[in-house]
């Protein structure tokens, strides 16, 4: 089971290293990780996708909570939440297949953000699974490069107070 963990942390130098160090040092895995400031300049939100059973997750959350710089940790998978991921995908697109690729992007409500001779760059925003699906669909055309933001997520309709 994959869990999406959201952590509000003090916006201090070294916090990212502290959290990543804790997770790797205790033998947990992170599948994706995203860090950015919040509306409060003093706080950053980290969104992590962590594979593992409930027991592993409980330890990850408890260990994170122990860190002095960590203000709040939530396992969003236990709640109503929204998750999104942004992907930039460059796909080979000779003139003959261009229309088909654009059509595919349209189906996913993805956008062509750059056109090169021989390739297109597609911007996709959506749930992680949808992003996975689009990349799968594009594979036959030869995916040249992918950059993904990692999942970001928020709880729905409950204000997460710092």
């Amino acid at each position: 089971m994959k869990h999406v963990i959201s952590a509000l942390v003090e916006n201090q130098p070294g916090v990212l290293a502290r959290i990543v160090g804790l997770i790797s040092g205790r033998g947990f895995n992170i599948e994706s990780l995203n860090v950015a400031p919040t509306q409060d300049a003093g706080l950053s939100r980290m969104t992590m996708t962590v594979p593992g059973d409930d027991r592993v997750l409980e330890q990850v959350m408890k260990q994170l909570n122990k860190l002095v710089d960590v203000v709040k940790v939530t396992d969003l998978t236990q709640r109503r939440y929204l998750n999104r991921e942004l992907a930039l995908i460059e796909v080979a697109a000779p003139a003959k297949s261009r229309a088909e690729i654009v059509g595919l992007a349209d189906l996913f409500e993805a956008k062509v953000v750059s056109v090169q001779s021989g390739s297109l760059t597609i911007q996709m925003v959506g749930e992680k699974e949808k992003v996975n699906d689009l990349i799968e669909m594009l594979k036959p055309f030869k995916v040249l490069d992918v950059s993904r933001s990692g999942v970001i997520a928020v709880a729905r309709g409950e204000q997460v107070k710092p």
């Binding site: 070294g14 860190l67 002095v68 710089d69």
Partner: peptide
Amino acid sequence: TTGITRAVTKHNYLVR
């Protein structure tokens, strides 16, 4: 020093 001691302290500070 803060990098090296992160895993062996309860907390550490680099005072800038």
